[in-house]
Design a protein around this nucleic acid. Structure first.
Lengths: 214, 214
DNA sequence: ACTAGCATGTTACCTACGGTAACTGGAGTC
DNA sequence: GACTCCAGTTACCGTAGGTAACATGCTAGT
């Protein structure tokens, strides 16, 4: 069979593909999410059409690029979520893992969160996100699954878990985004505050003197 | 004084500006967030440079456009937040107001949430968001203020309120985004689920049979 | 009445981007 | 040695954001 020959070629192509992705990674890390195909090709020491042969279009490259980081982040989060500890500790560990990741590489984070920038010009409508659901959705679904698997939520648990999954992920994301921009407190404090919010301190807090509370 | 003359001119310019904004509004509503300056100018019956004279650059136009809807939405939210009812009811009303808004005009919503698409080509770095903080930040700060004003959170209340403000807004946004795409349940159910989450049902839920809970 | 200024509008152009067609050079294969 | 395949190139297209330079019309001052 000629599978060995095809495999040889494919292995070479795959290696090249990985090199290109690493170059793209460097450029995105340097130039932010708006990095151009030309810049990426130049960084890789080649020219545009090769990128297009490997990845189809910009969305394809970005999807491939995003997948690496997304997978890595999701693995970290899963580990924190599955650690042998009680619920609150695990929630805090998961929050901390996410925040540590976005803190360590803000450029990558910005790229992951806004992959669908610059809707393609010639296209009707916008079929962006044809590849690679945004990271937020993935994390939301993941968390929903964990919640549904582990918690007893009574009737309608599946729907409730999904709402919560996406809601908690959104909370984490927005708070992290804001925190990353302003750095108003330490990471540990932020984690604690968010966990407190999830633990119902909003409902438990007393009204301020002078009128009915929020 | 020549203030009256200047005022005359300025009033005329302001009216024109409003007309242009309304045209832009129509186009964005029709074409989504990727609407081009040419399309907007054509809809307004004029050509590009006029838009640039009025709004500086695309970011300026988008900022002006966003401000209208942002202000309107924030006013609705403030009203819901200030209604004479108890806390849980008010939270639910606020969530419902937001969700109703994004449900009524998804295109506007998509535009508001991703204003900084397509980083300008010639610019170094990315000074996008030079105008118009994203809507999420505004809502977060607003909510933080309300929380801090109304709730007694003990020491560190200001920081806690800001974290919660941004976190809750992010929760609302992400859940709303997901819900708008999949429509897995009614708006009322979504509101109830989110309020339950904020009310600590996550911490209160029992473990599922078969192991330690989430 | 004639001109100066000024805002409004236009056409024509620039640069940069995403994306593609068509050509080039070198490896292996019959 | 001719044939094919593949990586890679140059050169180009269409469209976008943005700008310069020119035209037009209103109001004001003399």
């Amino acid at each position: 069979m000629d599978t060995t020959q095809q495999t040889d070629q494919q292995r070479s192509a795959d290696r090249r593909r990985r090199e290109l992705l690493e170059a793209a990674d460097r450029v995105v890390l340097r130039d932010g999410p708006g990095a151009s195909m030309n810049a990426i090709a130049a960084e890789a020491g080649i020219t545009k059409p090769i990128l297009y042969r490997h990845f189809g279009d910009k969305g394809g490259l970005y999807a491939a690029l995003a997948k690496r980081h997304t997978d890595a982040l999701l693995n970290s989060l899963r580990a924190a979520l599955d650690a042998p500890a009680e619920r609150r500790e695990r929630v805090e560990a998961t929050l901390d893992t996410y925040l540590a990741a976005i803190e360590a590489r803000p450029q990558v984070y910005r790229f992951l969160m806004h992959p669908g920038d610059s809707v393609s010009p010639g296209d009707p409508g916008f079929d962006v996100r044809k590849h690679s659901l945004p990271l937020l959705r993935l994390m939301g679904e993941e968390l929903a699954q964990v919640i549904e698997d582990r918690l007893d939520l009574g009737p309608g648990s599946q729907q409730l878990a999904r709402v919560w999954g996406h809601g908690i992920v959104g909370m984490m994301h927005a708070a992290g985004d804001w925190w990353l921009g302003e750095r108003p407190c330490s990471r540990a404090e932020l984690v604690r505050s968010l966990a407190d919010l999830l633990w119902g301190r909003l409902a438990a807090a007393g009204d301020r003197v002078g009128g009915p509370g929020f």
